[in-house]
Design a protein around this nucleic acid. Structure first.
Length: 588
RNA sequence: GGGGGCGUAGCUCAAUUGGUUAGAGUACCGGACUGUCGAUCCGGUGGUUGGGGGUUCGAGUCCCCUCGCCCUCGCCA
């Protein structure tokens, strides 16, 4: 080792010891006769001092040091003179009096400084990620990620899970996200697909008798990016045999409790709360509601029907819904213009027709341009149902159920943040269960799998597969943390006949099923145990535990919204020769 | 594919209704300084205002196109 200690560990007890530190020059303060350098590594910072007593030559060389030079400094640990102790620094009681300095490497003037107070633009940070990753904040995020993964591994190891790796080069599956494809050289015009998840492999492992599987699995989905979505991301993927939904949920409950305790010092009370999908949509308009605050959706369809307000009546009569939220005490915070902005937001982002609103005046009466369409008694009933008090702002959306869900979910989320209805540091964990098996396929008609095509229906819903697929509920469960889907899983179909039936409903014909999933259908006939599992989005979980805004903050080398890596330039051009070998021609 | 925001010195930002030579802090370079810790003080270098085109006597500012980054809807079993 070129060093005896790190830049974060020297304390008063080391005074008098001869040590060598290595690190990056964080800052330097040249006072001519004496020069201070704050030397930084990922463990911390230590002040190293160059003075004439340490050798004139060392002092001279020290004067040439600049930001981010890499140096090795040897000398004695000394107590700082009285009055010069730095309480802001963990190592602030001591300093290193250098008598041997070696410049291990110089550094160009960095485009930005790792400990500067002003954060540079994210594109610059991504281009020079090696400097960005030196930032203590980034290092904390990386270490948090490491610790969380370590806890996951340890916890699951204790529960007899074994880590099995599954292929990255697989085959394309018909449903789900767009695949990343990898051309095969030896089978020209055939392609591998990168895994969207190890789903089928882990089911095969259950059939193979590895009854508790886990993997920190890289997954790939070629879809548009978001603040919480990258084209490649990491899942804690696990699967268990001889279990039902409660067992899987129980394992994750325990894991969340341990993470919360060890990372945040929080005691979670188990079991975590559960809510059905239908309840979540009714109360919050979304399958991953943020339960850190209230402002639940309230249905008003029956009352709205009695009004003279044409929009309300029309929607109600055509089978739509009128639902609303009460932004407590927010009447004064949203002017006419502010409400216009909210209206604009739900129209443009969610396709809502409009936003109806009432402000509750001092007398507790509902005031609004549309109030004249409502009889006084009706207004009172509305106020009562909405739990309206003076100063409240009531917002209503009248539309198809789905649109009211989206628009009010959007409003609730936005108002929750704008009105600071929750402490951003607070953490809330819960489950949403019993998702529908199927959703309407907007583009092609018919049904599409809500989760994936291997999801088992609830036992009591098996009859409904034929009679009423829409009402059929799945043995599915999503982990929700702070209004974010942190993971999801299901109990799988372990019966070949049932699997075929579900494929049939999804419009996957016999030939396609055999072609794409033949191996699974085969395997299901060779002693498949009942099994189920879950996958947690590790990037998202780390982001949430770290209180961070973007998934890019917890990924060492993330991609931009357009899927590029600003540091390496990926994706990039390839040689014509490479394409020839693959038998591929670029169209453009 | 749609909507929105941003782009000015290495970095973070400013620049009045379109108006003189585009400024500040910081970084960088040079000088001074033996106890600083966001060191301080003095001096200096540094600009294709993302790129292209247009309107105008005159464009960082207005218009069109384009590139990049971010947020978002669609999409993401």
């Amino acid at each position: 080792m070129l060093r005896t200690h790190t830049c974060g560990e020297l304390r008063a007890e080391h005074i008098g010891r001869e040590v060598t530190l290595c690190g990056w020059v964080d800052t330097y303060r040249d006072h001519s006769g004496v020069l201070f350098v704050d030397l930084r590594d990922r463990y911390g910072r230590t002040q190293v001092v160059f003075a004439p007593e340490g050798g004139e030559e060392n002092l001279k060389v020290a004067k040439s040091l600049r930001s981010e030079y890499v140096i090795s400094a040897t000398g004695k640990v000394a107590a700082r003179p009285e009055g010069t102790v730095n309480a802001k620094l963990a190592t602030g009681e001591i300093e290193l009096r250098v008598d041997r300095l070696e410049v291990l490497n110089r550094c160009l003037t960095p485009p930005f400084h790792p400990t500067a107070q002003d954060l540079p633009g994210e594109d610059l940070r991504l281009k020079h990620r090696y400097i960005d990753l030196r930032r203590p904040r980034m290092q904390r995020a990386m270490m948090l990620r490491h610790r969380m993964i370590k806890i996951m591994r340890d916890y699951l190891d204790e529960l007899a899970f074994i880590d099995v790796e599954t292929p990255i080069l697989g085959r394309s599956t018909p449903e789900g996200a767009r695949d990343y494809l990898v051309p095969s050289r030896v089978q020209q015009s055939a392609f591998y697909a990168l895994p969207q998840s190890p789903q089928l492999y882990k089911q095969i492992l259950m059939i193979a008798g590895y009854d508790r599987y886990v993997q920190i699995a890289r997954c790939f989905r070629d879809e548009d990016l978001r603040a919480d979505r990258q084209p490649e991301f990491t899942q804690l993927d696990l699967e268990m045999a001889f279990v039902d939904a409660d067992d899987v949920i129980g394992v994750i409950d325990g894991l969340m409790a341990r993470l919360a305790k060890e990372i945040l010092g929080l005691e979670l009370s188990l079991p975590l709360k559960r809510m059905t999908y239908d309840e979540a949509m009714e109360r919050f308009g979304h399958d991953a509601p943020d339960l850190r605050f209230g402002m639940e959706l309230t249905d008003l369809t029956d009352l709205a029907q009695q009004s003279d307000f044409r929009v309300f009546r029309g929607v109600a009569e055509s089978g739509g819904r009128i639902r609303g939220i009460n932004a407590k005490g927010a009447a004064g915070k949203y002017s006419r213009k502010g409400i216009d902005e909210l209206t604009n937001y739900i129209q443009e982002d969610f396709g809502a027709q409009g936003l109806a609103w009432f402000k509750v005046d001092e007398a507790g009466k509902l005031a609004s341009p549309i109030a004249k369409n409502f009889e006084a008694g009706l207004l009172e009933k509305i106020a009562q149902r909405m739990d309206a008090e003076s100063g409240d702002l009531l917002l209503f959306v009248a539309d198809k159920f789905e649109v009211t869900c989206k628009a009010l979910y959007g409003l609730r989320k936005r108002l929750g943040a704008e009105l600071k209805l929750y402490d951003p540091k607070q953490m809330h964990f819960s489950w949403v269960v019993e998702f529908p098996m199927f959703a309407h396929d907007e583009e092609e008609g018919g049904w599409t799998a809500m989760h994936h095509p291997f999801t088992a229906p609830r036992r009591q819903d098996r009859e409904r597969l034929t009679s009423d697929p829409e009402a059929c509920r799945a043995q599915a469960y999503d982990l929700v943390v702070n209004g974010s889907e942190a993971g999801g899983g299901t109990v799988r179909i372990h019966d070949q006949q049932l699997q075929r039936q579900v494929f049939g409903l999804l419009g996957i014909d016999e030939a396609t099923a055999k072609d794409r999933f033949g191996f699974l259908l085969d395997a299901l006939q060779y002693g498949a145990p009942p099994h189920g599992g879950i996958a947690l989005g590790i990037d998202r979980l780390v982001m949430l535990f770290g209180g961070l805004e973007s998934i890019r903050e917890v990924i060492a080398f993330p991609k931009t919204q357009r899927g590029t890596d600003l540091m390496t330039g990926a994706p990039g051009q390839v040689d014509a020769k490479q394409l020839r070998e693959l038998g591929i021609k670029a169209a453009r």
